[in-house]
Design a protein around this nucleic acid. Sequence first.
DNA 1: AAGTTAGCCAACCGCCACCGC
DNA 2: TGCGGTGGCGGTTGGCTAACT
Length: 241
Amino acid sequence: MSNETNAAATQGESMRKGPWHEDEDERLVTFVKLLGSRRWDYVARVSGLNRSGKSCRLRWVNYLRPNLKHGSISAEEEMIILKLHEKWGNKWSMIARRLPGRTDNEIKNYWRTHLSKKAVTQDQAESFRFGEDDHGKQIFVFQGDDSNSYFKTYNGESYNPCMETSDTKNIAYAAAVSDFDLTVTSTSPYETRLSDWILEFQSEIKSEEDYNTTHSCCCYPACFTEENDLWGCSDSLWNME
DNA sequence: AAGTTAGCCAACCGCCACCGC
DNA sequence: TGCGGTGGCGGTTGGCTAACT
């Protein structure tokens, strides 16, 4: 029997489970502000919530904590998730530390529902190339005749730079890399580094004489190596304080 | 309109590491 | 040094809802 089960058993069968009510949230926030977000067992007992410390912690971390984003995952965030998952695997908490306002649970769920099913195969990776659209914009191109293939999922509302091309029947979907608005003033170290990343990425694309030789899988820059790796640093990319 | 299926996400479970005694 | 308590993490589940038939 686990410790948690033991603790629950000592308190009878009355320990609350399931969805949190608004008044429970308010109470938890009040007591976390008062006692801090460390001693969860203590917070649970003192608050009288009749929830386990674990449950209180989970609710705080995943929903009530300040600075949390509750909107959909952006294209930039998705790129980061893909890259970090490629590097670290299912280390959701580590990945979450690199995404401001996102929780490990949220990223894990997003991965499972959106990304895991479209893991890029080698063949698919080789189908990506860089090109230009009718207006000379640099674009990612996925070449293939399967309209259900990987890049179609980038055509959702959260990925505005995507567009469907019409110039050739073989080119199914394209993403306009240069559509990322880099003129916006960065407001955080995270955004600054992301902008730097994209700028360097675009520079890399410009220098490619033969688009087809670009070996980046998906939309990752080839310019980051093990020695020069934006993703390899151990600290967070931003300061939430 | 009703039933079924699929997708999403909040919450739980079990394991493990750390810390204090 | 061993043990119990606690928090953190990843995997899994279950309920809700939208889409489909």
